[in-house]
Design a binder for these strands. Structure first.
Lengths: 194, 194
DNA sequence: TTGTTGTTTGACAAAAATGTTAAACATAAT
DNA sequence: ATTATGTTTAACATTTTTGTCAAACAACAA
């Protein structure tokens, strides 16, 4: 396919991701993406054949990027406590850059009525087991381990999705918001781990 | 305007809300909404003039419905503990019905590049003050009260937004999911209030 | 240089979504 | 029954978005 790699294909995908995941413009058109990338719209068809294929490719890579982060932390040779700290650190850094990534994944699934892709559940199950053991050891409050994971991801992801609302509600500017989000890393850890 | 109220205007809005807030189909067209409501698409223009006006009206009412719930609980004549329990109970019931309501509000703001509407901050400020007092009284962990509120809403809202993903990741069906969400009410309260 | 191949562009075509209009319809009042 | 008024519909028009194609362009090889 791409014999002379001009970087255009990657540029288009990166731009699409910026618009969708960072700016949260889920209704962006192919023209919007082309303009933002500074390329002719026809190139989107040249590299991806159709809008739907491009959008799905972006969704697929979003899921892959997500799994990659989680797998990396889940399989790290670390004690649970350190794993947790690293997970919070890495995930929140990504969430601050791409706050709407999960929202994009979900809305694309809702839009296309496509079956939810079966996740590789081995890593998750192993981590759920670790969580259970930590509960037995009294390091974290006893509950359904799935609830524990939902709590964790909720605390990390949601405030960034509702960024614009929070800034209005709590009367804070960009800098202060950034500080609040950085503080959250420590706060979340202390909240779920004694 | 509506001398003979046939209920059509309300039907259109209710249908739009169902599609946007419940089904999470944020890319729905006017035709999609008309079909789902079982009415001629022209009626959307008859009652709302344009698509944009309808969509903004829906967003405005979404914010109003949200504030209404919060205001009601915030100003209730109850002790903080009971207020919190009621808030969790009422908010999660709504979130289970309309999981994507906040997402709709946010994406409409991002789509239209409209200024974030200034919220009535009096009630919020009063509640933030109550939270501070509760912290001083040792009933909740000390932190920035805004973080406390973010925690609370994150824990309530996020798992419902990611419903379809969670079902795949944790291998659960609709019924089990419903039970998990009901259990969360108690779980969230115990997590943030000693 | 010339030919080859992959890339980019503009003009055009097609499809999808939204908006407009006149006429049909229904209901209530005269 | 007839008129008046608000509601609904179908046909049409417009705008927006997406897709196609041939030609121009750029890099590389023979």
């Amino acid at each position: 396919m791409a014999q002379r790699d001009t970087g255009t294909e990657q540029l288009i995908k990166d731009t699409a991701k910026r618009i969708f995941f960072s700016e949260g413009k889920l209704h962006a058109t192919t023209q919007d993406i082309a303009d933002a990338a500074g390329v002719n719209r026809t190139l989107l068809n040249y590299y991806f054949r159709s809008r739907d294929i491009l959008f799905e490719q972006v969704a697929i890579e979003a899921r892959e990027e997500m799994s990659a982060v989680l797998d990396h932390v889940f399989t790290a040779q670390l004690a649970f406590k350190e794993k947790l700290q690293q997970l919070i650190n890495v995930f929140m850094d990504q969430a601050m850059k791409f706050p709407y990534r999960e929202v994009y994944i979900v809305t694309e699934l809702n839009r296309t009525d496509k079956a939810v892709p079966e996740e590789k559940k081995v890593r998750i199950k192993a981590f759920l087991k670790e969580i259970s053991e930590e509960m037995d050891a009294g390091k974290i409050k006893k509950m359904d381990p799935r609830q524990f994971l939902m709590n964790l991801f909720s605390l990390m992801a949601y405030p960034l999705i509702t960024n614009c609302l929070n800034k209005s509600i709590y009367n804070i500017n960009d800098n202060e918001y950034l500080k609040l989000m950085k503080d959250r890393k420590k706060l979340i850890f202390e909240m779920i781990y004694q």
